[in-house]
Amino acid sequence: MGKTSDATLHQRILSEIEQKITSGDWPPGHRMPFELDLAEHYGCSRMTVNKVMTQLAKAGLIERRKKSGSFVSQPRSQSAVLEIHDIETEVRALGLEYAYEIGSFSVRRAIEGDLAKLDVSPGDQLAEVSCLHRAAMRPFCLEQRLINLKTVPAAAKPDFSQLSPGAWLLKVIPWSAAEHRIFATGASVDVARCLEIARNEACLVVERRTWSHSGAVTYVRFTYPGDRHALVARFAPVPQ
């Protein structure tokens, strides 16, 4: 087999395995076929397969474990702490298929517990929504959100059929200020069920409040399984 054919076969194997991973056919944690089995399947040398596996590992798509084999990696996302990011963009940046589903939606009056989350008064109208974001069909992030209907009246009857609540808000109303609070916590029973993880498993929580020139817009709590998300901030020294 010539060099051109070797290169073509290498690319074919790489593309087919990448497709299985990014489509979710081989979900995170899936045990990869052994190199000998892949070599036999593709009718090539083990060296060719090894080069593919090395490339996949460098790209962060698989993990190679001594004596155990290779496994599809858990998706690890990175977002800037000071950015208002969209979960769909975050998931697609990982090369994974994105989907979301609305868990609940209701319109109600603000109660005392809401006042610390949003700059509202008791009795103000709020929209409350929760949704689950998925990456390659697996739970990626749980979103729990309050929206101030005084500032965003359209949120009383929103169209979330094409856009998730966060993406919808970014399109409907510009924000002028934001605040993040970031911490770790153990998964509650309800969160564990939604994210398909064990109760009390470590989770990373990002709470955000945003304002527009008209007033408080939204409070949102994003909960990620702790091994699937990282936060990154870029900054520069203050001029002296």
Rank of each mutant, 00 (worst) to 15 (best):
R109H: 14
E97Y: 08
E201D: 15
D114H: 09
A233K: 05
R31Y: 04
M1W: 03
P237H: 01
A127S: 13
A178C: 05
M53E: 08
P165D: 05
E196T: 06
R234P: 00
E101R: 15
Y224K: 03
Q162P: 03
C131H: 11
I173Q: 07
S68P: 03
V220Q: 05
E88W: 02
S70A: 14
D86K: 15
R46Q: 12
V189K: 11
Q11V: 04
M1N: 07
R138H: 11
D159H: 01
R76C: 13
D114Q: 04
Q11M: 11
G113T: 13
I102P: 08
A178S: 14
M32G: 00
P28I: 05
D86T: 15
A155F: 15
A116L: 11
Y219P: 00
P174F: 05
M1T: 01
P139A: 13
G103W: 07
P237C: 01
E83D: 15
F235I: 02
L195H: 08
L204V: 12
G2C: 08
D124R: 04
S106T: 10
L115P: 03
L163K: 14
A198E: 10
T8N: 12
V191W: 05
H133F: 06
I62D: 03
L126T: 04
H10V: 00
S70W: 06
C141D: 02
I173M: 07
W168D: 07
P225G: 03
Q125E: 13
R46P: 06
I84G: 00
G43C: 06
A187G: 09
H229W: 03
V91K: 13
Y98V: 06
R12M: 14
R108C: 08
A236R: 14
V205D: 10
C44R: 06
T48N: 01
F71K: 04
V191T: 15
I102C: 01
R193I: 08
A233M: 04
M53G: 10
R209N: 13
Q144E: 13
I111S: 11
H133G: 09
R208A: 05
L163T: 04
R234A: 08
L163W: 10
H180D: 13
R181W: 10
